[in-house]
Amino acid sequence: MASKKTDLAIVNRSFWPQSQVIGEGLLQFAEQTAQHHSVCVITQADGDLATLLTNKGRGKGVQLRACKSYTTSSSGLIKRIAEALFFMFWTFISLVRAKPAKVYVSTNPPVVVPLIVAVYCRLFGARYVYHLQDIHPEAANIVVPISGVLFRLLQAVDNYSLRHADAIITLSEDMKVYIQQRSNTQRPIHLLDNPSFDVKPVPMAQRAKDIVFCGNAGRLQRIPLLMSAIRDYLQQGGKLCFTFAGGGVHAPDVKALANAYEQVDYLGFIPATEAAELVNQHRWALLPIDDEVTKYAFPSKSSGYALSGAGVLAICGEDTSVARWVEQLEVGVVCPADSNALVKCFFSLEERGVESFAVGDEVRERLLIPYFSRKLRDYIFVGTP
């Protein structure tokens, strides 16, 4: 085994401050770990990340290996694939130079970067923890169908990474079961919620606004269905008002609806802390998700919604992990992904009285960023300081 220069490398294309929630969680993870271990972060950034961290008094003792970022979530698929491959090579070179004994890697970007981490660890006798915040190529295949040969190849590659990981982290029981079935891995699989900033819930009676959507208006969020249902609801005399915040490929559709109806407001992209406060002003928060993708992912905005105390209106099938999450935590209602059903649901919300959807202290702690970063440290440094 080659001698190691670094105790831990954290590999994730998105980091603080561009990735405001997960990035903050990983930064806290790095900062806490750096108190007792040498830590290197391998990531991408728009500018001089090291200087920004220093100016903000963050990242003490954390080594940075950051290459320039060229794409966003709205960039074309070919550009994003090219950048993922570029980051894969950057990651391998950075790992060889840093020589970490342990590596944390997530699915950002998916498949290729976890593979390069697995290869590095096999070559240099290191160990890694694989965090699947979504499962690929299945999640990507829902958006852009992948040819059968390439799909099976990507699955085989990812299964290799899963079987050789020291441990695996994912989001839901459905995802855990699927990972086990697909890869036949014998590695331990831990469940860890996506985190959120802390928000002090405003009492429901003090919330002046009706329904909000905060997050990525992407290909898996049923935005066309949602736009159609809201349009029908308003044309039938609906009284509720809707607020949207965030970017994504369907942002122009949301903006067009807002331009057409006074009861719809589109704010564009806003920082995560402002988004949390925005949700806190509304009685209901929209959580639309494609049913098939719930086997391979879980909406990141769910934790922030639950912490805010707003009622979650999940738009999905009843036999999905998202629907079960809403019902088990008692944080809202579930509506089938059907335009007529959704219109009826909107009208029913007009008649509902003041309700409380606040989660208990145990659930609240589990959904916060400090818990997320602490559990990552526990999974990687079990039994060490």
Rank of each mutant, 00 (worst) to 15 (best):
K5E: 12
V11N: 01
N12P: 07
N12G: 06
F15N: 02
Q18W: 14
G23K: 08
E24D: 14
L26N: 05
Q28P: 08
F29C: 10
A30G: 11
H36A: 14
V39Q: 01
C40G: 09
D46E: 07
T54P: 07
T54W: 15
K56F: 01
K56E: 10
G57D: 05
G61W: 03
C67G: 11
C67M: 15
S75P: 08
I78C: 04
A84D: 01
L85C: 02
M88R: 06
W90E: 08
T91D: 03
T91G: 04
T107E: 07
N108V: 04
P110H: 00
V111Y: 05
V112C: 08
L115W: 15
V119D: 07
R122G: 08
Y130E: 14
Y130P: 00
H131N: 07
A139I: 11
A139R: 04
V143N: 10
P145R: 10
I146Y: 08
S147G: 14
S147R: 13
G148W: 15
L150W: 05
F151P: 01
A156H: 10
S161K: 03
A165N: 03
S172D: 13
Q180I: 12
T185F: 03
R187A: 08
I189H: 05
H190Q: 10
D198H: 07
K200N: 13
K200F: 10
K200E: 15
A205G: 10
R207N: 10
K209P: 00
K209N: 13
R219N: 04
L220C: 01
R222T: 01
I223N: 02
I230K: 09
R231S: 14
D232C: 14
G237R: 11
G237C: 13
V249N: 09
H250A: 12
A256G: 08
L257E: 07
A260P: 08
Q263M: 03
V264A: 03
D265E: 12
L267D: 11
F269H: 13
P271N: 14
N280Q: 04
Q281I: 02
H282S: 02
R283D: 07
W284A: 02
D291L: 05
T294W: 02
Y296M: 07
Y296G: 08
A297E: 08
F298I: 05
S303G: 00
G304V: 06
G304P: 02
Y305D: 03
L307Y: 00
G311D: 03
I315H: 01
I315M: 02
S321V: 06
V322M: 06
V322L: 08
A323W: 00
W325D: 06
V326K: 05
K344N: 15
C345K: 14
S348L: 13
L349G: 11
E350Y: 14
G353Y: 00
F357A: 06
A358Y: 15
V359N: 05
V359K: 06
V359D: 07
R364E: 15
Y371Q: 12
R374H: 10
L376G: 00
F381I: 06
